[in-house]
């Protein structure tokens, strides 16, 4: 279950040159690769490209495969790629429990089974009993933990982390990073993280620098 990028490159709308030199990369199951690079080099665009949410107008080259299957033709919802965003992106109209249930796959049938899966996820996140809480009342760290558990409940084949720890306080950042990366490693899925933070790079298994 690996994520493979072969000669991937992006050209922004209206631009002539590619944002970064063609990138080839293989991320093994349970491995976390950190992609670093200067502002504007296209780190977040790379994540959007892999996740399937690249805005219209970008031109792309190369291929992305997950478990040997080409992701290129698949819409975002069919790729099986979870994404952790900077602001956690919890749905503000849903409770914490409903946010987690949103990620649950349809195969988890029955109210009791779904409720149990949500409760387990919350317990793993150290947030037992938070089912009915309003996401707006959570701290940044709590939100990120819920976002990770929600992503994992969807049973993705790979996970992408887009500057997810950048807005957390320095002390908290380390704890949340460790929490996220340990859970990803335990899930045995490949993870690609883009970041500005050297500490993120140190926590990853491998580091890659994007160059123009």
């Amino acid at each position: 279950m690996s994520l493979e990028l072969s000669n991937v490159s992006l050209i922004a709308p209206g631009a002539e040159a590619a944002l970064f030199a063609p990138l080839s990369l293989s991320v093994a199951p349970g491995e976390t690769v950190c992609v670093m690079g200067p502002s504007g080099v296209g780190k977040s665009s790379l994540i959007a490209h892999i996740g399937g949410h690249l805005p219209r107008g970008f031109r792309t080259t190369g291929t992305i495969t997950l478990n040997g299957g080409d992701l290129g033709a698949l819409p975002a919802e069919k790729r099986g790629v979870g994404v952790l965003f900077q602001d956690a992106q919890l749905f503000p109209h849903l409770s914490v429990g409903d946010n987690l249930a949103f990620g649950l796959r349809a195969e988890v049938r029955g109210r009791a089974a779904r409720r149990e899966a949500v409760a387990n996820a919350l317990e793993q996140a150290g947030l037992a009993g938070f089912e009915t809480r309003d996401p707006a009342t959570l701290s940044g760290g709590q939100r990120m933990r819920v976002a990770l558990m929600r992503a994992l409940l969807a049973q993705p084949y790979a996970i992408l982390i887009d500057e997810a720890f950048a807005r957390l306080d320095t002390g908290l950042r380390e704890d949340i990073r460790a929490f996220v990366l340990s859970h990803i490693a335990a899930s045995a899925i490949p993870a690609l993280m883009v970041s500005h933070d050297e500490q993120d790079a140190l926590a990853a298994d491998r580091v890659l620098h994007l160059a123009r």
């Binding site: 959007a48 996740g51 399937g52 949410h53 819409p75 975002a76 919802e77 069919k78 790729r79 099986g80 790629v81 979870g82 994404v83 965003f85 602001d87 992106q89 749905f91 503000p92 109209h93 849903l94 949103f102 990620g103 796959r105 929600r150 992503a151 969807a154 993705p156 992408l160």
Partner: peptide
Amino acid sequence: LDPALMASAASLGAGPLRRLLAVKLPMLA
């Protein structure tokens, strides 16, 4: 509406119709 919310919903397996009915419309109530 923050497009990252829709990207997040899509990454959780929600197709266009579910994104519309379960995320956009309730958020824009």
